[in-house]
Computed example of a mutant assay.
Amino acid sequence: MLQRAQVRITRRLEGELLIAHDLPLASYDVLLQLAEAPRRRLRMNDLADRVLLSRSGLTRLVDRLQRDGLVTREACADDARGLFAVLTDLGADRLAEATPTYLRGVKGEFADPLEPGELARLRTMLAKLA
Rank of each mutant, 00 (worst) to 15 (best):
19 I>H: 09
19 I>T: 13
20 A>D: 14
20 A>H: 07
22 D>A: 12
23 L>S: 05
23 L>P: 05
24 P>L: 06
24 P>M: 08
24 P>W: 00
24 P>C: 00
24 P>Y: 02
27 S>G: 15
29 D>K: 15
29 D>R: 15
30 V>F: 01
32 L>Y: 10
32 L>S: 14
34 L>F: 06
34 L>V: 03
35 A>T: 00
35 A>Y: 00
37 A>E: 08
37 A>P: 11
37 A>H: 01
38 P>N: 00
38 P>E: 10
40 R>W: 08
40 R>K: 03
41 R>D: 01
44 M>K: 09
44 M>N: 04
46 D>R: 06
47 L>V: 05
48 A>V: 11
49 D>Q: 13
49 D>K: 12
50 R>L: 14
51 V>C: 11
53 L>V: 08
53 L>C: 09
53 L>E: 10
54 S>K: 08
55 R>D: 03
58 L>G: 02
60 R>E: 13
61 L>Y: 02
61 L>E: 03
61 L>R: 06
61 L>D: 00
61 L>S: 04
63 D>K: 15
64 R>G: 09
65 L>E: 00
66 Q>M: 08
66 Q>F: 05
67 R>G: 02
69 G>K: 12
73 R>K: 02
74 E>L: 09
74 E>K: 05
75 A>L: 12
75 A>M: 04
76 C>K: 09
77 A>N: 10
77 A>C: 02
78 D>G: 11
79 D>T: 10
80 A>D: 08
81 R>I: 01
83 L>R: 13
83 L>V: 07
85 A>V: 02
89 D>R: 15
90 L>A: 14
90 L>C: 13
92 A>V: 02
94 R>Q: 07
95 L>Q: 11
95 L>H: 06
96 A>S: 11
96 A>P: 07
97 E>G: 04
97 E>W: 01
97 E>R: 02
98 A>L: 09
100 P>Q: 10
100 P>R: 04
101 T>Y: 03
102 Y>S: 09
102 Y>N: 04
103 L>A: 12
104 R>V: 01
104 R>H: 05
104 R>W: 06
105 G>Y: 06
106 V>C: 00
107 K>P: 01
107 K>E: 02
108 G>H: 15
109 E>M: 04
109 E>R: 06
110 F>R: 00
110 F>L: 12
112 D>L: 13
112 D>N: 12
113 P>E: 10
113 P>V: 08
115 E>W: 05
117 G>F: 03
118 E>M: 11
118 E>H: 08
118 E>S: 12
119 L>T: 04
119 L>W: 03
